[in-house]
C-alpha cells in the first residue's frame, strides 16, 4: 500500500467504516438500497446532525459545549410561547429570527463566560444546560403543538413533491457553509489555531477571547437551527427536546475525526459521523432492537469513537514515520555489523 493511499484511508476512516456497516445491513435487508430508505437514513439524524456540527466547531476550538441540546430546546420553546401565549399570529419568518437570535445570544453568553471570564467550558455549559432546560419548563411547561405550518415545514416538510426532506437538504447546505468557514476564512483558521495551541495563537496576535465568543455564538446559532428542525420533525415542542441526544453529539463529532483535545477535524469527516449514526439508527430499527438496548449500544458507539479518536493520530504518525524508521533500521544494522 502506498503511503498516500494509507494516509487517505486513515484520514477518511469513518467513511470506510460506514461503507462496511452499510454493506452488512444490506446483506441482512436488501431493501435498504432503495433511495427512499437511504434518504430516511439521513432524515432520522438530520436534526441531531445540526447539533453535531455545533459541537464539532466548539471541540475544534479546544472546548466543550454541553448546552447544545438545551439551546435547541429553549429557543424552540421561546418561539412556541411567542406564538401561543405572547403574540399569537406572529409571522413564521419573525419566529425563525427569534429562534436564531435566542440561540446566538445564549451562545454569546457561554462564550463570554468561557472566553472573557475564563470559566471552565465544561462547567459553564453544563450550568447553561441545566438552566435552560429548567427555564423551558417555566415558559412552556408542557408539550406545545400550536405553531404555523410554514415554521414546521423546515423540519417536517419535503422539497416540492420529491421524497427529499427539507432538513436533509438544509443539513448538506449547512455542511458546505461550515466547511468553507472553517477552511477558507480567517475566523476558521483562528478556531483551529486556538484549539491546537492557545499560547501560540496569542503569539500570532490572535484575540483568543473574542474568537471564543464567536465560536460559542456560532454553536448557539446552529443549535437554534437544530431546534427548528426538531420542532418540525415532531410537529411539536417537547420539554425534553434533544436531551437524550447530547452524548450523541460528542459521538458523532469524535467518530468523524474531530480531536477531543482540539485543533483538528474536518467537516467531511463529521458528516461521515452523522451518516454513521443514521445507518445505526436504521439498522437497529430494521433488526427490531428493543428500546432498552438503545442506551447500551449508544455507550458502545461512544467507546468505539474514543478509541478511534485516540489511535487515528498515532496510526498516521506511524505511517509517516515508517520511512525514516526503515532508514534507521539500516543504520542500526550497520552498527551491529561493526
Amino acid at each position: 500500500m502506498s503511503k498516500k493511499f494509507s494516509l487517505a484511508i486513515i484520514d477518511n476512516m469513518i467513511w470506510v467504516i460506514n461503507l462496511i456497516l452499510f454493506i452488512i445491513f444490506l446483506l441482512i435487508e436488501p431493501k435498504l438500497i432503495l433511495p427512499k430508505n437511504i434518504v430516511s437514513m439521513i432524515y432520522s439524524v438530520s436534526m441531531l446532525g445540526f447539533l453535531i456540527f455545533a459541537q464539532a466547531i466548539v471541540l475544534i476550538s479546544g472546548n466543550f459545549d454541553m448546552s447544545v441540546g438545551a439551546i435547541a430546546g429553549f429557543s424552540a420553546t421561546v418561539v412556541a410561547a411567542f406564538y401561543e401565549f405572547w403574540f399569537p399570529g406572529t409571522p413564521w419568518l419573525i419566529l425563525v429570527i427569534i429562534s436564531l437570535a435566542t440561540g446566538t445570544l445564549i451562545g454569546i453568553y457561554n462564550g463570554f463566560m468561557v472566553g472573557k471570564l475564563n470559566i471552565n467550558p465544561f462547567l459553564q455549559t453544563l450550568a447553561s444546560h441545566v438552566l435552560f432546560y429548567g427555564l423551558m419548563l417555566i415558559i412552556g411547561g408542557r408539550t406545545m403543538f400550536k405553531l404555523p405550518r410554514q415554521y414546521l415545514s423546515f423540519g417536517g416538510g419535503f422539497v416540492g413533491d420529491s421524497i427529499l426532506p427539507v432538513s436533509v437538504v438544509a443539513l448538506i447546505i449547512a455542511a458546505i457553509i461550515i466547511h468553507i468557514i472553517l477552511t477558507r476564512t480567517t475566523l476558521g483558521r483562528q478556531i483551529f489555531a486556538i484549539g491546537s495551541n492557545r499560547i501560540a495563537a496569542k503569539t500570532c496576535g490572535i484575540n483568543v477571547e473574542n474568537t471564543l465568543v464567536k465560536v460559542f455564538a456560532i454553536s448557539g446559532f446552529i443549535s437554534a437551527v437544530a431546534g427548528i428542525m426538531y420542532t418540525g420533525y415532531m410537529s411539536c415542542v417537547t420539554m425534553d427536546m434533544a436531551q437524550p441526544d447530547l452524548f450523541l453529539t460528542f459521538a458523532g463529532a469524535i467518530l468523524g475525526g474531530v480531536a477531543i483535545a482540539g485543533g483538528s477535524g474536518k467537516i467531511s469527516g463529521v458528516f461521515g459521523g452523522i451518516v454513521f449514526l443514521g445507518i445505526m439508527e436504521i439498522g437497529l430499527t430494521m433488526l427490531k432492537t428493543r428500546a432498552t438496548w438503545r442506551e447500551p449500544i449508544t455507550g458502545i458507539i461512544l467507546a468505539i469513537a474514543v478509541v478511534l479518536n485516540t489511535y487515528q493520530g498515532r496510526l498516521k504518525g506511524h505511517v509517516l514515520a515508517k520511512e525514516s524508521e526503515r532508514r534507521i533500521e539500516k543504520e542500526r544494522a550497520e552498527i551491529e555489523a561493526i
Binding site: T186, R189, Q190, F192, A193, S196, N197, I199, A200, A201, T203, C204, G205, I206, A259, G263, S264, G313
Partner: peptide
C-alpha cells in the same frame, strides 16, 4: 517552540497564522 508552533496543523496554517488578512 511549543509556544509558537501549531503541531497538529499543516505548514500552511503555521506559516500564515499572523498574516491571514
Amino acid at each position: 517552540r511549543s509556544e509558537g508552533v501549531f503541531d497538529c496543523r499543516p505548514i500552511r496554517d503555521n506559516l500564515f497564522m499572523s498574516s491571514l488578512e
